[in-house]
Design a protein around this nucleic acid. Structure first.
Length: 355
RNA sequence: GGUCCGUUCGUCUAGGGGUUAGGACUCAUGGUUUUCAUCCAUGCAACAGGGGUUCGAUUCCCCUACGGACUACCA
């Protein structure tokens, strides 16, 4: 050392001594020091290892609880010993070793590789490894709400003991306790994560959702009045898991259909359909008020007058206006689009769809 | 290999010496809906195995099996 040689500092582990500590989640954990080795405390570059740094930092910061993953459990006895050796045993924080999050397929700790392989994110936000340049996708960018993500995460290993599953951050803070955290690892469930997001989405108003949808509209150069978009969102939110689904499922609200669903044409666009739709169009044109109720009433009286069933008219009507075979109530859709637009679309459809 | 931790429906889990073992997600079926979705109802489905303790174990104890974590001058 005097000659300037590199050196490290290790802890001198006592022989054959039981180290015991109480973990909040696991209860008493007991390890014999014979199974522990003389861990390095200072590396040859003069920097402390995690084991030393963690204990010193936490002591200096008056940390009350050390809450970390189960992978730290094997080195916890070393940390307990360190507190003792430094004379800090009385001020040692409480330990809680959380169960691991397991991969959805098979077993084993969830890793970022699993996400790439199985097609779901493992990080809260997009992340680029500064060393390797490797990209990992995040929940936020995929359209998950922070609240939904937290809610899902909290329920991986913890539960309130009631049947309530939806918790705001404030409720979570109130209800959460380490004592109710389970010991076993939990597999990540993608379906359940989506369900949480769907539940959160539905709690927003149409106006709030419209604001959230704006960036997606802009990205595709689609324009719409905020008030209009809000109404679209109100109508569509029951069928969406992510905000972007509203655009995906309801693109026809923002631009006329450019194509018509082949399957629906094949099954529902009969020989007499063009004539029927033309006649319906004529009636809609005369409607003094183009609101959902009036449109519905008009539609119904048309069916009665012509002695037609819903199935003979509605699919063609929907296909002409939206280009799709299924979706929200046509009365609402038509009313939202407005008479002029609806009539125009029908005209285009009649000229475009060939049987 | 060694040490430590774990094991209730496919998944997340509640429960806890005597229960029809409860809920949620998924899936299936039925109802509502012009359609799809939603919503409602119903259904499928679990205490890893073996020993104890006990009048009685899924619950307590032990063993086995299986799974996981750790075993770096990483964290």
């Amino acid at each position: 050392m005097a000659a300037g040689d590199k050196y490290i500092v290790r802890v001198k582990m006592p022989r054959n001594e039981e180290v015991k500590f109480e973990d909040i989640i696991r209860g008493w954990v007991c390890v014999n020091t014979n199974n522990l080795d003389d861990k390095v405390l200072f590396k040859s570059d003069g920097m402390p290892t995690y084991h030393l740094a963690n204990v010193v930092d936490d002591y200096l910061m008056n940390i009350s609880h050390v809450i970390r993953g189960e992978e730290w459990l094997p080195s916890a006895p070393l940390h307990v010993l360190l507190y003792r050796f430094f004379g800090w045993a009385d001020e040692m924080p409480q330990f809680a070793h959380l169960p691991l999050i397991l991969r959805p397929d098979g077993n084993g700790k969830l890793s970022k590789r699993d996400g790439d392989r199985l097609g779901f994110p493992v990080f809260p936000t997009n992340w680029k490894n500064p060393e390797t340049g490797e990209q990992s996708s995040g929940y936020r960018e995929r359209g998950y709400y922070p609240g939904a993500f937290n809610n899902m995460l909290a329920f991986l290993g913890w539960n309130p003991g009631t049947t309530q599953e939806l918790f705001s951050m404030e409720e979570l803070i109130q209800a959460f306790s380490l004592e109710r955290v389970g010991k076993a690892g939990a597999k990540f469930d993608f379906d359940k994560t989506n369900w949480f997001n769907q539940q959160y989405l539905r709690m927003y108003t149409g106006i709030e959702l419209a604001t959230q949808l704006m960036p997606y509209l802009e990205a595709e150069s689609l324009e719409a009045e905020n008030e209009y978009t809000a109404q679209v969102c109100d109508l569509m939110k029951e069928r969406a898991t992510f905000v972007k689904d509203i655009l995906k499922e309801g693109r026809y609200f923002f631009e006329a259909p450019t194509s018509y669903d082949e399957k629906t044409i094949k099954k529902k666009w009969k020989e007499q359909t063009p004539a029927i739709i033309t006649e319906l169009s004529g009636l809609l044109k005369e409607l003094p008020s183009f609101d959902p109720e009036s449109i519905g009433a008009c539609f119904k009286s048309f069916l009665e007058a012509k002695e037609l069933g819903f199935g003979a008219v509605m699919p063609g009507f929907r296909l002409s206006v939206t280009g799709l075979g299924a979706g929200a109530s046509m009365n609402n859709i038509a009313a939202l689009l407005g008479k002029e637009e609806v009539l125009k679309r029908i005209e285009v459809a009649l000229n475009t769809i060939k049987k």
